[in-house]
Structure formats: structure tokens, C-alpha cells
Design a protein around this nucleic acid. Structure first.
Lengths: 346, 1292
DNA sequence: AAATTATCTACCGACAATATCAATATATATGGA
DNA sequence: TTTATATATATTGATATAAGTAATAGATAATTC
């Protein structure tokens, strides 16, 4: 493992790559691994398959591989410099793992997964039911780059839809994201940053903050203090992170749950209500469609609920609104809810 | 502009500009032998506007923002406008106290002091209305001017106001006379000065002063009024008609004779009013417009006039076909036999149309309301109040429900404005609301609530499905549109009021006198309307717009159907017709106002193309001639000469040169364009309307698609890429649907407007874009429109073809077919070879073999076929009276100007500046050059070249060559070429590779061909870049807020040959959020002065400069054609006139092009820049180790020590400013001090050749300030522009 | 002071993000002299 | 009555929003460490 550190100066030659940052302290990785208690989920490592997306320097891959001893561990990356680096890394005898392999493909591209899984059958996860977290498949990813947030949001939608790799079951995700993204995702009702994605996260997953970067002055984290108390994340230093410059990052653990959500209506209702996140429902509901205010006022008996603001609502309350919305005879066409971009041809 | 010395005068500037800088080279001497003889020199020295105008805009005293202190002005010009509009609003709403306090604020703005008296006068006028005692008024004025505003002096208008009130307020005759005498004695510039205020004094006032009190001689009155005042006196005394010469005889003297022929009495056949004729052909859409347009013909007064004419002159020709359409004036006119008859007819039509125009611009909203009411009452009478109500009935109901709300709100606003003290018992929310009311209240109380309701409803319907919203509109657009419409209405009423004022208290005695007044009104309309320069702030517009809209949302309901998801039963209910919400686009929120689907369907079904802006239709009378920067065009709808994109800077320049009457040539040209009379080509209209009614797609008319059907959603667990495809597909469908819808809508507008103008004579008022190109003011239907619009219209006047006209008509047809690259006789031959096709097309346009549809411009081709066919049917085709405009287009006009500027001989040849037997086709030529290059490269073994060399056709390079003039970038051109090549290569990647490669060669070829032109293009770009990165000495400190680099504020400004000052408006957009009732909207404040957008300044300047030249050429040609009484129209670089006049026009336009380019425009531009931007600074990077650099570093250190802090760039600039001020001082001591001063800039100046020190890449640089210097003008080629006099194909 | 990241990509006519909250600026009130 | 401080309110600024980067890639300006 020491050679990994040796490799660092070499890595610094790789040009900045759209904001990606990687934790490169083995000790921290080990601490993280301990905290995750993965063996409780993956009782039979011999059947475990791991998909490692945007592994970059792949230090964590090696560590996790050594400790988890999965049956198969596929690293997917397409960035030439990292591909080269990983190629060298896995052939290095010091790494000493026969289970790590590289699949050259862009994790951003949906086709990369279909071709890897369905076409080339490089990785073939088993299909599991929805009653528990998938116990033979783990996905790790580093989405700390600037496209990362967008991609994660799409993955979240995939959890809802149960497509992409979530079609194999409730597959656990370990994802490095920018701190700001983690803050958004983990915002609770009443938080300033409570937004659609945090509602969705609540609805579809059980997500935990595993590790996060220390602020310049200790404990000035953007995270809510209750949240920190609850999740007790590992704090690490910015010095352990490469690239040295960039935005702070956090590691989250995403455990998809067995949800039963009316997806499209839920999406529409949350999206629209959270635009007026500090406006009482009694007014905010009017923005759902023609006559929204009148309808919802007639069906919501709970005056206290009507006085609440969208940002204070729990997932259950959003679900309740969704249900009412669905029952609304004059509800608007939710599939026409987009702007037709102005573009002239020729 | 800095005001360094008070003594500098325009003269000096003028001299500087006029000096010959570029030495006349030997070649130039050879090229222009005529320069040596007097005649030529004279012609090139003749100023067509530039010299005078540029001198005005560069006089040191002139500042685009009307004051000397640039730091204050940016803030003040904005607050002045806000205060003005608020003052105006308060005055009209009668909030005098508040108005007075605004007045005080205005007085507080020093920069505004000079024109403050005008504001005071406005206030005084209103104040006086409520005064019943002259003494009170006197005291008030005295007190105000002495105590409240001591720095202000009254002017003649103040006196006119006092005079007017002295005559109005009841008092004894002695006292009245005494007062009047006092005021008259106080005159600032004589009695005439006072008397010229026709917006204050009324005809009756004048009459009293002249005839009763005998204080003023008739000759002191404005000339237009004398007859009328005299007549007023006669009629009051005798009540009998004395023979009266018409007022405004100046422009009507030629037709006086007919006047007497048309005596105004007797035998007035009162024609039956028949409303149904208007509806007969009506598809319910456009009723509002149609009613507005056609309804006015119904008044008996109008019919009377027509019938009088009919009765006296041509009774057998006038034929009202009952129950059909409006009177076909065109047909009547066409069939008239003599010129005299025509003139008489024209005159009658003119009088009639003046009235209609007046109605058109003023009564639009009323007309709409009447329509709704009518439909409602009709339905009620029938007992038909079914659930699916007709649209108009709904609208009428909404209107009626909305009205009380609006009235209530207006009342609240008035209460608050009057009370001023807020009740402490109110809740905080109410307090907030009242506060808001204080802000928008004054604006909301200006226009009749009824009108506001109608406007709101119409605007919202009009905006249906705009802005990319599927069933609705963007809120921001909606609130501003409503606000703007209210403002427009207010302004129209204001203009109307002003106009009527002078005639206000006349006792209308006789018919003759009424007519006289009528005539006087008409002359007055074009004479003396003082346009307001006040604009409401966007914020105010948005606010009142949102208030009104939210009230409409509140009341407007529609019946809706839905399905209960539980019971699956059909449910009926009522829902708001409009709903406010949001949609996301790329993560940004967008406020939308949705229209309920049932209403959208109804709108589609009824094909209501709600209210075309009735104020902005083509005009029935000649537009008001342009006289100043904001006076011209429509009569009651304010329009400005230039559509400045919210750029107060250009307006300021424009005002200055306009006031100095330096741009009269621009006005002349524009007025010629406006005077061209048009009519709808009825045959074409009938064909198109037939096609339209089938609802099927035809040529560029899209078919009628009912509703948007989206594809069904894929299964939940389908791959994300499938979901993505689905979304994409839906967006595409929606896009297609809405672009189809808007295209159909657009065509509908065109047809409906054309229908309304069938048989009418109409005109297009024009104004200019910021570069001086002319555009018709009326949207939708104008000659700049697509082929369809163009095919729909033709000249009102017909002219006999003659032999050349016949020839040109054939050429025109050939051109429309795209067969325009052959010599003229071949084009004639082309037309002649298709005689049978022409006949078939003309006679069976839809059922025949449709030859015309194959044309490039099928509709116009068809119109031409019809004319040609008619002509051919005649015994002598030359006798045919032709109406179709024939076009002469410049071949690549931009390149023509470039070639003339750059003097490229080869380039000039290729764009037909050189005489030639055949027209040259520059695109083919470039293609040839490219192929040659490729062949050479292929010979050297370049594979790509070998593959490409036989694939390069004219079409491949055309777009790129064309857009090259507009500064297309390498990457942009690659895309264009890729579009062409993508059909050749199946692999995208490969085709892109090839395109990249080919683009390089195309660029190189174009550059080779137009070398001089490109050097100029580069030079222009470089100048623009440096200017937009230059620093004014009096730069705002705030510009330094982000670091040591200031925000750059100077835009590129130049003066066109005609004297029009152009200011490139490209600045960073300074939009801000503004809170309204519904949501906040994100809008730009037009008075904010934002930093320059250097990139756009640079990229835009070369094309803009060229466009300003072609605009000048067009306006000059227009004016010339006007001199020759040609009907002239133009689409930038395509000039139109009658077939028979083409030869004349061709001579004139060549003459004007030569005249334009005889002066070395580039050199003159450089002089202008040098002058305008002298003392501006630029930031340079120079070698650290150079001598100057060392000196500067030392100086900086010194100064830094003295100051005890970092010596900043701002300090350096300030210091240099001081130095320049001292240097330009009158005082010799100061001057010497200035000369002795050493600044970082002066050090650079001493160093001389700065260019050699410039270093950009190296680390061993320091940043220094240097005087702005522009690059040297590139050398010019040998082409002599006068060659084109004989170039047949220059325009063809 | 170098390197990463964002923007724009042919001109004009032309047509537009918004809600919320923290932080600052300004106005008003209060208090003390 | 006048000036200084505290509080209230207005204005300004920052940030999040949604969720394929439209099919394409290079130059240049802006920003950041």
C-alpha cells in the first residue's frame, strides 16, 4: 500500500479533471471501511460483486478490495490518464488482487452499463427481491466532479424507477459527492436547503453521511448539527484530498428502500410546491394548476397542514398531497410541464 | 466627453474632421484624375450629413447624458426619467401635492436645472385648472419662482399658461386686459415666443387677444392658425360663411381647384348603416381588428364624403356592393380616367382616411369592447346562454366582473394618494400593500378602468402560446406587455388631448367652419405634436400589469370537464381561465401564466387571432413625416426614429444631432419610404385565402394541426436512455407543434390584415434600427416579410410598362425563379420561353400545372405571372399598367461595400462593381478558388484535399461566404459547411473533420479574393476591441470595485455618412428582480449604464459599420428616387420600384453609391475615432526592463510613498485627468503646471513608439496606462468606385 | 502570475428566471445632552 | 434643539433550482489560487 503514496507525485501530472477530488489517505479509508460495517450486509463475500465508478487513482478500490475480498471488482473509468494509471496499478504485484479488473467505459453514459452487463457480460449481478438491500452487489462511485451532482440526481431517479443497476434490486451505493450536494440531499424538513432532492432522498432511500471534510475552522460545517450528531461522520482533513484545490467533499451511503410512490404525480407535486418553499400550502397549492387553491382547501381538513410551508413538510405529507392531487378531477396535464425551447433552424 | 475648456467650439472639431489626413498617393492621383478638376472636388465636399453631425456629437460641451459630470449622470438620468414619469402620472391623476414634492426632487438634481422650467410649467398648467382667482395664480407663480425654485427663470410657455388662464378665469374686462398686458410685456423672446405655444393657447384665446382685446397683431400668431383665428372671429359675428381658404394651404394648394368642385352641401345621401356586411365573410377571428378597421367606414359622415364625391364627379364609378366587402377604393381609383379625377379622389380619400386613421389609432379598445357587448346581447336576446359560451360572451362577462375590482383598486389608490397618512391600525400586510399602492397608484389612475380591463384581456389572449409555454405565456412577458399597452393607451390619449386643446373652446358654427377646423387639425397632426420623451419605468409597467392580471385571474372562469379518478365519472366544474405557476427550464424557474386547456381549444377553434396591435397596422394616410428624433410615423402612437435597444446613450446623441438638424437627409429618405402607397393584390389575396381555408399545408403555409399529442411513456423500469429518448421526442413534438402553430398564426395575421386592407391605399411608416437600417413600424404585414407577404402587396399607383418596363418585368420573373445569374437578355429569354407556363400559372394558379410553385419565391412569381399574362393579352403589352414592384438586388451588398472600401479589383469584379458582360457570381468564384487550392494540396499528397476537391460546389461555400461579412467564426463556418457535407459523408465524425479542413481553405480563398476588404474588416475589429477596452478619464470610481481592473464603459460610436450617430448597444445585461403582485420578474432597467460587452462590440462592429453604410446608401437612393417621384421601397439591399422606372432607379442608385464611396470613409472614420476618443486610455503590457517601464515603476513607488498606500490604477487615471485638465486650461500658469506634471501616462507619451514595447505573453511585463491609439489604416487597393457607373449587374 | 473554467460560437429585425434569506444600507426612533 | 445610538425597513447579493452535456469542438475571456 505504501507504493500508492509513492505514486502521488506522478498523479499530480494528470491535468485537472473537471473538479474531481479523491481521498488519498489509506488510514481514512480504513476508518471509513470500519464504520460502514459492510460485512453485515454482504454476509457472503464470495458472491459479492463490486462496481467501482470513476475510481480515479483507485486507492480506495485497492483498500476495499483487500478488506472486502469480493468475488469480482470492476473499475469503470474512461479518462485516459486514469485508465493508464489503473492499468498499471492492477498489474502491480504489490496490489496482489486477482479480482480487480478495469472496464473502460464512461460511467456517465447509460450505454456503458448495458454494454458491460448485457452485451459483454463482464459483470453480471444477480437479481434480488425488494425486501432487503441487495447482498451480492455493491456500487461505489466518486461523483465529486462538476457533473457529479447531476448524475447522482439521475441515479436517484433510477432508484425510484428501479431501472439502471437498480433493476437488480436495492443496490447499496457508496458515493463521494461534493459537500454541498450531500448537504442538499440530507436536508430535513424545516431546513433552509430542504429541496426536492432531499424529499426524494427521504422517499426512496435511507441515506447516511459517512465522512466529510473538516472545515477550515473546526466544526463550521454546513451540515445541520443534529444531522452530525445523528450520523457521526468521520471528519478528514483537506490535506488528505487530491486535488489540493477544489470544493469540499463528503461520502454518503445510499440504501434504497422499498418504496411505493406514485412517481409522476409525486414528482410534479414536490417540484411545484418546493418552488414556493416558504409560502404556506394554502397559497402554494394554487400553483399546481387551475383552481388548485379551491380544490385543496376543500379536501384538506387539517388547517394546521394548510398553514405549513412546503419546506417544512415531511415525505408523508408530500405523499398525502400527491394522493389528493391524483384524485383531483381537474388536475392539469403533468406531461406538458415543460418549456418549449426557442430555437429556430436553418 | 469631457468638458475641458469652455471655449472649444464646433468649428474646430469640424476643421479637424475635414482635414485631409491620408496623403494622396501617386496611385490615388492616377485613379482619380477628376479630383483635380473643380466639379468632382465639389461633389465630394458636399456634406450629406456627416460633417455637421459628427461635429455636433463631438463638441466638447456635448455630453450624451446631458450633463458634465459622468459620475452623477448615470444615476441621475435614471432618476430623472422616473421622476418625470411619476410627475406626469401625478399631474394627470390630479395629485398636485405629490406632484409638487416631485418637482422639488427634480429641482434638486443639478444636472437637470436647465430644463426644470418645463416641468414646472406642466405643474403650473394643472395647478391653474383648479384656480378661480387670478391673484392666487399670480401669487403662486411668484412665490414658487422666488422662494421654492430661485434658480429657475420663467419662459414664454409659463407666460402662455398665465395668459391662457387670464383669459379663462372670470374677471372684469379691465383686469383681464391688464393681466394680459403684463404677461405680454414679460415676454422672453417677444410676442411670437408666447404665441407659438399652441399647446397652451386655444383658438378662442388667440381670437380674444387679437380681436377683442386687440393686444396682439394677427401676424404674431403661428402662420397655420391665422386663417382659422380670423375665421373664428367672422363666424362668431356673422354666423354665416365667408369664403375661406383651407388651412395648411402649403401642401394642398395644388388641389385647391377640386376643392371648390366638391362643395360640401346638399343632397347628402344617407346610406344605410349595415353592420352585417362586416361579418359576412367573418370567421370569428380578427373581429376586433376587422371591426376596428372596417367599422369606421360605417359612420354616416364618412359615407357622406364618399357619396359627395360620387355624386359630383364619378357617380357611375362608385359602386357600393351591398353585403359584400368594403369599398374597393383601389378599383375605383384604378378605373378613373383622368389625372384630375384621380387627384380629386385622392384628396377625398385622404380626408376620409385621416379620420379613419385617427379612429384606428384611438378607438381600438372601445371597438373590442363593443364587439363583446354586441355578441353578448345578441345571445341574450336569443336566450342562448349555453354552457359552451361563445368566446366574446365570456370576455364580456369577464370584463364586467373585472371592472368593479379595477375601479375599487383605483379608488384605493386615490384614497391613499390623498390621505398620505397611513392608518396605524392596519396590519403589516395591509401597510405593505398600501406602500406598494403609493408606488404604482399614480400610474393606475391614468387610464379609464374600462379600457384597462379590455387591454388586459386582449393582451393575455394575444400572448397565448408564446414564449415556449405550451398553453399559456411567460408571466414576465405578460405583465410587461399589459403595462406597456396601458402606457401606450395613456400616451395616445394624451396626444389626442393635446391636439384637441387648441380647438377646445371654439363655438362650432357652420359646416364650413367645422371643415376648416377639421383641416386645421389634420395639418396640426403633422405639425405641432409635441411628443413626450417620458417613458414609464419597466418596474411601473410590470407592477400595474401584474395588478391587472391578477384581478383578471381572479374573475375569469371557464367551464371545465374532468374525470373523477375514483368513480371514472365525467365531472363538470368551473375553473379559473388563467392560472399562475412556474415551470423549470434547465434548472431555472420560469413564471408562467397558463391558459386553461378548454379556453385554448376554444381560441384555436374560433381562430381568434386576437387583436393585432391595432395601433401598429399599416397606415391609411401618409405617415407623419419625420421631423425629429421622436416625431414621425403614426399620429397618436409614439414612435422613435431609432429602435434603440434600451440605450439611452444613442438617444442622447440622436437628440443632439436631431436638434441641430444635422440628419435631415435621413428624414428625407425615410419620408420617401413612408410616402410610397400600397394596396393589397386582390387576386393574390383570393388565391391565398382559398388555400388557407383548406387548412392543408401549401408552400410556406403550414397545415392546421389541432392539438398536441405526445407519445406514451415507456415502462418505468426501461433503461434511462429510453426515458431520455422519450422526453426528447416529446420536446421535439411540442416544438414542431408550436412552431407550426406560430407559423400558421403568423400567416393568419398576414391574411387578416390583408383582408382588412383590401382595396385600401396604405402606407408603411418606417423607422431605423440602431445602425440606421430602415424597417416598417407595422409588424406582421409589411414588405420586409416573407414571400407570402410580399406577394400580397403591390403599389397603389400603376405605371405604364413601356418597352423597358416590359423587359424588366420579365427579368423580375426570372429573378424570382432564381435564374438571376445570367445576362439580362438571357433572363428575358427565360421568361419568354415560359409564356405558356406563365399563362397557365396566371389563369389556373391552383388547378394548372403550377409552374409558379417551382420558383424560389413562388408567391411573388405568381403575382408577376399574373401581370405578365395580363400584359401579354393586350394588343400592345407596353400599355399595360403595372403595379408589381420590381426588385434590383445588390449582389452580396456587404461585400460590395467592403470591396469599395478596400479597393480590391478582383473582389470588386466578383461582386459586379466592375462593368462586365455577364453578372459575376461570387459564390461560384470562391468555390472555384477553393477547388484550385485543394487540387494544389492534393497534388502534394494531401488526402483530404483529394477527397474533397470534387465535392466543393457553389452551394457548399455560399453560406460561409455570405456570413463571412458578418464575421462568422471558424467554428461557426465549420458547422455550416458540415451541414452541407453531412449528406456526402455518412460518418458524422468524418464529415466534421472534413468540414474543419475545408473551412480553412474557404476562409483562405475568401481572404485572398477580398484582401483589402479583409484588412479593413480586421482593422475595424481591432479598433472596436481597443475602444471597448479603453478607459475614460472621468471614469466612475465604482468601476474599480472588483480589483485593479476597471469595468470598461466606452462603446464604439461613429457617425454614418448621413450624419446618423451610431452607438453600439452591447453591454452586459443588467437585469434585476422586480417584485410584482404575482411574482418577481427579471427585467433590465433601460437607464442603467452597464459595463461594455467587449466581445460583442468587437464582433459586431465590422458588420454594423457596413450596414450603416448600406443603410446610408439606401436612404440616399430613396431620397433621390423621391426627387424623381418614383415609388420606392427597399429591403435593405434590395430596391423596389415600378418596372418602368427601373432604369431611372438604377442610374440613381449607382450615382449615390459612388457619391457615398468617393470620400475615403475609412480614413474619415479613423479621424472621427481619433477625435472622439482622444484622451482615452488603454491598458498595455510592456517590457519590464525597458526604460519607460523603469521610470514608471519609480514614479509609482514615489507616489505610493507620498500617499502612504498603494498607488492604484484609479489614482493614476485621476492624476492623468488632472494633468489634461490643466493642459487644456485657459490660464497660462495652470497650463504650464500641466505641462510640467509627470504622470505614468505622460511618461509613456514621451517614450513615443509604444507598440514596440508591447509584450503580451511573457512574464516580464508590467501593466501600464497609455493613451488610446488605433492601428494604422490598411493600404487600399486600386479599384476606383466610379467604375460601377457602367456596371450593369451592380444591382440587378 | 499561471492555470483552470466558463462562454460563445454571423449581423439586424427580437421579444425578458425566480424564491428565499443573509447582509448591508438607509431611515426612523429613541435617548441623552 | 441637536447629535449619537439603536432599531426597523429597504436594498442588494448569493445561492439553489432540474437533472443528460441538444447531434458537434476550439478560441478566448473570466476567475481563482
Amino acid at each position: 500500500m505504501s507504493m500508492l503514496v509513492k505514486r502521488l507525485p506522478e498523479l499530480s501530472k494528470i491535468p485537472h479533471y473537471y473538479g474531481y477530488r479523491y481521498m488519498l489517505n489509506p488510514a481514512v479509508h480504513n476508518k471509513i471501511f470500519d464504520k460502514l460495517q459492510l460485512h453485515k450486509t454482504y454476509l457472503n463475500p464470495g458472491r459479492l460483486k463490486v462496481l467501482d465508478l470513476y475510481p480515479g487513482p483507485a486507492q480506495h478500490s485497492v483498500i476495499f478490495n483487500n478488506r472486502l475480498k469480493p468475488a469480482q471488482h470492476v473499475l469503470m473509468d474512461a479518462r485516459p490518464d486514469f485508465v493508464k494509471h489503473i492499468g498499471a496499478l492492477i498489474s502491480d504485484e504489490e496490489v496482489n488482487s486477482s479480482t480487480i479488473e478495469l472496464y473502460e467505459g464512461d460511467p456517465y453514459d447509460w450505454d456503458s452499463y448495458t454494454s458491460m452487463i448485457d452485451e459483454h457480460k463482464v459483470l453480471t449481478p444477480s437479481i434480488k427481491g425488494l425486501e432487503a438491500i441487495h447482498d451480492e452487489f455493491l456500487v461505489m462511485a466518486n461523483l465529486s466532479g462538476m457533473i457529479g451532482e447531476g448524475l447522482f440526481m439521475q441515479w436517484l431517479a433510477c432508484i425510484g424507477n428501479r431501472n439502471w443497476i437498480q433493476r437488480f434490486g436495492r443496490v447499496k451505493l457508496l458515493v463521494w459527492v461534493q459537500e454541498s450536494t450531500a448537504v442538499k440531499l440530507l436536508a430535513k424538513p424545516g431546513d433552509q436547503l430542504r429541496s426536492k432532492c432531499s424529499v426524494v432522498t427521504d422517499a426512496f432511500t435511507n441515506t447516511k453521511l459517512i465522512a466529510t471534510m473538516e472545515g477550515r475552522s473546526p466544526r463550521d460545517s454546513k451540515f445541520n448539527s443534529d444531522l452530525l450528531a445523528k450520523h457521526e461522520p468521520i471528519f478528514f482533513s483537506a490535506k488528505d484530498v487530491w486535488m489540493p484545490s477544489g470544493k469540499p467533499i463528503s461520502l454518503i451511503e445510499v440504501n434504497p428502500n422499498n418504496h411505493h410512490v406514485d412517481l409522476d404525480n409525486f414528482d410534479y407535486v414536490t417540484k411545484h410546491l418546493l418552488i414556493l418553499k416558504s409560502t404556506p400550502l394554502s397559497s402554494a397549492l394554487d400553483s399546481l394548476g387551475h383552481g388548485g387553491k379551491e380544490y385543496f382547501r376543500s379536501v384538506i381538513r387539517d388547517e394546521k397542514l394548510l398553514q405549513k410551508c412546503p419546506k417544512d413538510l415531511t415525505v408523508e405529507e408530500f405523499m398525502y398531497c400527491t394522493k389528493l392531487f391524483d384524485l383531483w378531477p381537474f388536475k392539469p396535464d403533468i406531461y406538458m410541464d415543460f418549456i418549449d425551447v426557442f430555437q429556430d433552424n436553418d | 466627453m469631457l468638458r475641458y475648456s469652455s471655449s472649444s467650439c464646433r468649428f474646430a472639431v469640424l476643421k479637424r474632421l475635414n482635414r485631409q489626413i491620408r496623403p494622396v498617393s501617386h496611385t490615388a492621383l492616377l485613379r482619380k484624375p477628376l479630383n483635380l478638376d473643380g466639379t468632382r472636388t465639389q461633389s465630394s465636399n458636399e456634406d450629406i450629413g456627416f460633417l455637421k453631425s459628427s461635429a455636433v456629437s463631438m463638441t466638447p460641451g456635448f455630453n450624451p447624458f446631458d450633463n458634465s459630470d459622468a459620475v452623477v449622470q448615470a444615476g441621475e438620468s435614471r432618476s430623472i426619467m422616473n421622476l418625470w414619469s411619476l410627475l406626469e402620472a401625478c399631474l394627470h391623476s390630479g395629485y398636485l401635492d405629490r406632484a409638487f414634492s416631485i418637482l422639488k426632487s427634480l429641482y434638486g438634481l443639478k444636472s437637470h436645472r436647465n430644463s426644470f422650467i418645463d416641468d414646472y410649467n406642466k405643474y403650473l398648467m394643472k395647478f391653474a385648472e383648479g384656480v378661480t382667482d387670478l391673484k392666487v395664480l399670480d401669487r403662486k407663480v411668484f412665490h414658487d419662482l422666488q422662494k421654492n425654485f430661485p434658480a429657475t427663470e420663467y419662459n414664454d410657455k409659463t407666460l402662455a399658461i398665465l395668459l391662457h388662464n387670464a383669459l379663462k378665469i372670470p374677471t372684469t374686462n379691465e383686469s383681464r386686459s391688464e393681466h394680459c398686458q403684463t404677461y405680454l410685456k414679460m415676454a422672453v423672446s417677444g410676442y411670437r415666443g408666447i404665441m407659438s405655444n399652441v399647446d397652451i393657447l386655444t383658438v378662442e384665446n388667440y381670437r380674444t387677444l387679437v380681436h377683442d382685446l386687440k393686444l396682439v397683431e394677427l401676424s404674431y400668431l403661428p402662420v397655420e392658425l391665422r386663417t382659422l383665428v380670423d375665421a373664428a372671429d367672422h363666424t362668431t359675428e356673422t354666423a354665416d360663411s365667408a369664403p375661406i381658404t383651407p388651412v395648411g394651404a402649403g401642401n394642398m394648394s395644388g388641389t385647391k381647384k377640386e376643392d371648390t368642385g366638391l362643395t360640401l352641401d346638399r343632397d347628402i345621401q344617407s346610406l344605410k348603416k349595415d353592420a352585417s356586411e362586416l361579418l359576412a365573410v367573418d370567421t370569428i377571428g380578427m373581429k376586433v381588428v376587422r371591426h376596428t378597421l372596417l367599422g369606421i367606414t360605417l359612420t354616416d359622415d364618412h359615407r357622406k364624403q364618399i357619396s359627395e364625391f360620387n355624386f359630383n364627379s364619378a357617380s357611375n364609378l362608385l359602386n357600393f356592393e351591398e353585403g359584400k366587402e368594403n369599398i374597393d377604393f383601389f378599383e375605383i381609383h384604378r378605373l378613373l380616367k383622368t389625372e384630375d379625377e384621380r387627384a380629386a379622389f385622392d384628396k377625398a380619400l385622404d380626408t376620409f382616411n385621416h379620420d379613419r386613421q385617427h379612429q384606428l389609432e384611438n378607438r381600438a379598445t372601445d371597438a373590442a369592447k363593443e364587439r363583446w357587448k354586441h355578441d353578448f346581447e345578441e345571445a341574450k336576446a336569443r336566450g342562448d346562454l349555453s354552457i359552451q359560451k361563445k368566446l366574446n360572451i365570456k370576455l364580456w362577462e369577464w370584463f364586467n366582473q373585472m371592472l368593479p375590482l379595477v375601479k375599487e383598486e383605483v379608488k384605493r389608490c386615490t384614497d391613499i394618494a390623498n390621505k398620505a397618512v397611513s392608518d396605524p391600525s392596519l396590519s403589516s400586510q395591509e401597510k405593505k400593500q398600501n406602500k406598494a399602492r403609493q408606488e404604482y397608484g399614480p400610474y393606475l389612475t391614468l387610464v379609464d378602468p374600462e379600457k384597462m380591463c379590455v387591454i388586459t384581456i386582449l393582451e393575455l389572449l394575444k400572448l397565448n402560446s408564446t414564449g415556449g409555454v405550451i398553453e399559456g405565456m411567460r408571466t414576465a412577458r405578460a405583465v410587461i406587455s399589459v403595462g406597456k399597452a396601458i402606457e401606450m393607451e395613456f400616451r395616445a390619449e394624451l396626444l389626442l388631448k393635446n391636439e384637441s386643446h387648441v380647438f377646445k373652446d371654439i363655438n362650432k358654427k357652420s359646416h364650413e367652419f367645422k371643415l376648416l377646423v377639421q383641416r386645421a387639425r389634420n395639418t396640426f397632426r403633422s405639425m405641432k405634436i409635441e411628443e413626450s420623451k417620458i417613458l414609464w419605468p419597466q418596474e411601473a409597467r410590470a407592477k400595474i400589469g401584474s395588478i391587472l392580471i391578477s384581478m383578471l385571474i381572479h374573475v375569469a372562469k371557464v367551464k371545465v370537464e374532468g374525470v373523477d379518478p375514483v368513480t371514472s365519472q365525467k365531472v363538470e366544474g368551473e375553473a379559473p381561465a388563467f392560472s399562475h405557476g412556474y415551470q423549470y427550464h434547465n434548472g431555472s424557474k420560469l413564471g408562467v401564466l397558463k391558459i386553461h386547456r378548454s379556453l385554448v381549444h376554444q381560441l384555436n377553434g374560433e381562430r381568434l387571432v386576437a387583436a393585432v396591435q391595432p395601433q401598429l397596422l399599416p397606415m391609411l394616410v401618409k405617415p407623419r413625416p419625420w421631423k425629429s428624433w421622436n416625431s414621425g410615423g403614426y399620429y397618436y402612437t409614439q414612435s422613435t426614429l431609432i429602435r434603440s435597444k434600451d440605450s439611452p446613450e444613442q438617444v442622447a446623441y440622436l437628440k443632439a444631432v436631431s436638434d441641430a438638424s444635422a440628419i435631415d437627409n435621413v428624414y428625407r429618405g425615410l419620408n420617401v419610404l413612408g410616402e410610397t402607397s400600397w394596396t393589397v393584390n386582390r387576386k393574390m389575396f383570393n388565391i391565398m385565402s382559398h388555400v388557407w381555408n383548406t387548412g392543408k399545408p401549401f408552400l410556406d403555409i403550414p397545415g392546421n394541426e389541432n392539438k398536441l399529442v405526445l407519445t406514451p411513456q415507456p415502462p418505468r423500469d426501461a433503461d434511462p436512455s429510453v426515458h431520455r429518448q422519450w422526453k426528447l421526442k416529446n420536446k421535439e413534438l411540442a416544438n414542431e407543434f408550436s412552431s407550426n402553430r406560430s407559423a400558421r398564426c403568423d400567416a393568419n395575421y398576414k391574411l387578416e390584415i390583408a383582408r382588412a386592407f383590401l382595396g385600401e391605399r396604405f402606407y408603411f411608416p418606417h423607422n431605423l434600427d440602431f445602425r440606421g437600417r430602415a424597417y416598417p413600424l407595422s409588424p406582421h404585414f409589411n414588405h420586409l416579410g416573407n414571400d407570402m407577404s410580399r406577394g400580397l402587396m403591390m403599389f397603389w399607383n400603376g405605371k405604364r410598362l413601356g418597352s423597358t418596363g416590359f423587359k424588366w418585368l420579365k427579368v423580375h420573373l426570372s429573378n424570382l425563379f432564381g435564374f438571376d445569374k445570367a445576362p439580362l437578355d438571357e433572363r428575358v429569354a427565360f421568361a419568354e420561353s415560359h409564356v405558356n407556363d406563365i399563362k397557365d400559372s396566371a389563369e389556373n394558379p391552383l388547378d394548372g400545372n403550377g409552374w409558379w410553385k417551382k420558383a424560389d419565391k413562388p408567391w411573388q412569381a405568381l403575382a408577376t405571372c399574373i401581370e405578365l399574362n395580363e400584359a401579354l393579352k393586350m394588343e400592345n403589352p407596353h400599355d399595360f399598367i403595372s403595379h408589381v414592384p420590381v426588385h434590383q438586388d445588390g449582389t452580396c451588398n456587404g461585400l460590395q461595400h467592403y470591396a469599395a472600401l478596400g479597393g480590391d479589383v478582383e473582389g470588386a469584379t466578383q461582386v459586379n462593381l466592375m462593368p462586365s458582360d455577364r453578372p459575376q457570381d461570387v459564390y461560384s468564384h470562391v468555390a472555384k478558388l477553393v477547388v484550385a487550392r485543394l487540387e494544389r494540396a492534393a497534388a502534394k499528397g494531401d488526402e483530404m484535399a483529394a477527397i474533397l476537391k470534387d465535392k466543393v460546389k457553389r452551394k457548399v461555400v455560399k453560406q460561409t461566404v455570405m456570413t463571412n461579412v458578418y464575421g462568422v467564426t471558424y467554428i461557426g463556418a465549420t458547422h455550416q459547411i458540415d451541414k452541407q457535407l453531412s449528406s456526402v459523408f455518412d460518418d458524422h465524425k468524418r464529415s466534421y473533420e472534413m468540414s474543419k479542413y475545408l473551412t480553412k481553405h474557404v476562409f483562405a480563398s475568401v481572404r485572398e479574393l477580398f484582401e483589402g476588404a479583409h484588412l479593413i474588416q480586421d482593422w475595424l475589429g481591432e479598433c472596436a476591441k481597443r475602444i471597448s477596452k479603453s478607459i475614460r478619464l472621468d471614469i466612475d470610481e465604482k468601476a474599480f470595485k472588483n480589483g485593479n481592473k476597471p469595468d470598461f464603459m466606452s462603446s464604439v460610436i461613429w457617425t454614418t455618412p448621413l450624419g446618423l450617430p451610431i452607438v453600439q448597444p452591447y453591454r452586459e445585461n443588467g437585469k434585476k428582480q422586480v417584485a410584482t403582485n404575482l411574482q418577481t420578474v427579471f427585467i433590465s432597467d433601460p437607464f442603467a449604464v452597464n459595463p461594455i460587452n467587449a466581445r460583442r462590440q468587437k464582433a459586431g462592429f465590422p458588420p454594423n459599420f457596413i450596414h450603416s453604410l448600406d443603410a446610408s446608401h439606401m436612404l440616399l437612393s430613396a431620397a433621390r428616387c423621391g426627387d424623381y417621384k418614383l415609388d420606392f421601397a427597399a429591403v435593405h439591399d434590395s430596391y423596389w420600384t415600378h418596372a418602368s422606372d427601373i432604369d431611372t432607379m438604377n442610374i440613381l442608385l449607382r450615382e449615390q453609391f459612388i457619391k457615398l464611396h468617393e470620400v475615403d470613409l475609412i480614413e474619415r472614420l479613423k479621424n472621427e475615432f481619433d477625435e472622439r476618443y482622444k484622451n482615452y486610455l488603454q491598458i498595455l503590457k510592456i517590457d519590464k526592463k525597458s526604460e519607460v517601464a523603469c521610470k514608471i515603476v519609480t514614479l509609482r513607488k514615489e507616489l505610493s510613498q507620498k500617499l502612504g498606500r498603494q498607488f492604484t490604477l484609479a489614482d493614476e487615471i485621476y492624476m492623468e485627468k488632472k494633468r489634461v485638465q490643466l493642459l487644456e486650461s485657459e490660464d497660462p500658469v495652470e497650463k504650464a503646471n500641466g505641462a510640467a506634471m509627470v504622470t505614468t501616462v505622460s511618461l509613456i507619451g514621451e517614450a513615443g513608439d509604444v507598440g514596440s514595447l508591447e509584450k503580451s505573453n511573457d512574464a516580464s511585463c508590467i501593466m501600464v496606462l497609455a493613451p488610446l491609439s488605433l492601428p494604422q489604416i490598411p493600404p487600399k487597393g486600386d479599384f476606383d468606385v466610379r467604375e460601377l457607373e457602367n456596371s450593369k449587374y451592380f444591382f440587378s
